[in-house]
Amino acid sequence: MTTIGATMRNELIGLGGFVERNVYLTKRYILWDIAFMIWTIANTLTIVFIARVENLPKAKENELATILLVGAVIWAFLGIIFEFMTETVAWERWEGTIEYTFMAPVSRTMHLFGQGAFAVLYGLIRATILFFAVAAFIGLHVPHANYGAAFALLAIASVSFIGVGMMTSVLPLISPEKGAQLGFVAQGVMLVVSGVYYPVSVMPHWMQLIAKISPATYVLRGDRASIVSGAGMRWADVWPLVVIAIASMPIGLTIFRIGERHAKRHGKLKRSG
């Protein structure tokens, strides 16, 4: 095997190691996961029931409930991606494995991709369960839904979410105490400006400008169109996601590398507790 071939092989095995580790952790914490799933369903129901109290005609109520449900599902999905990416550092620091992971001969790109790949897989499973559980509970009627298009758009958006997640995952590296919380702030801000439960047009103009560079804006818009009216994937939603993905990946990696260098310079790459 050539040197490049061998290196690529080792890198992919390393990437698989991160996915494998998260599979083990998910198995070991499965009861916690089930509890979290129930909490997420309950929380989503509190949002979707808003459509009922409005006393709207049935069709309108159904549409509003779907719009709210898609927002809540994307919020939950993005939450999983950000949580896994931010926990890349925070959890390892807490368990004490951080030094062993960062001294392993696997590139940071594969390290972060591995975390991201598992987060997307796990997030998609949870998002699917959440959507159908809540839809069944409230008797949501979406006969025209194009689930394939909605799923595919979410998968494309995931690449951008991983890129943005890389940027936030550096925060616990720089600030061991407050970094993880700052990651949640970033997640909240992204969804607020992206029209999580409302159209982007109702926000102040300056927020609408920020919405243009948020990948969540396009996935929320596209997935709502697919679920409510059965629209296919629209190029107007796809191309911004592709552009943001192409830009956010290298930016995310560069920011993480700068953060890692800072941590190594100042002795912050170590366990806590």
Partner: peptide
């Protein structure tokens, strides 16, 4: 190191297994 540093909920087999992947095993 002085601290064993493992994912405490995971088994020895699982901890060694994923760590070995980082070294191409």
């Amino acid at each position: 190191s002085v601290e064993a540093s493992f994912f405490k909920k995971m088994s020895a087999q699982e901890n060694l297994s994923y760590a070995a992947r980082f070294y191409g095993m």
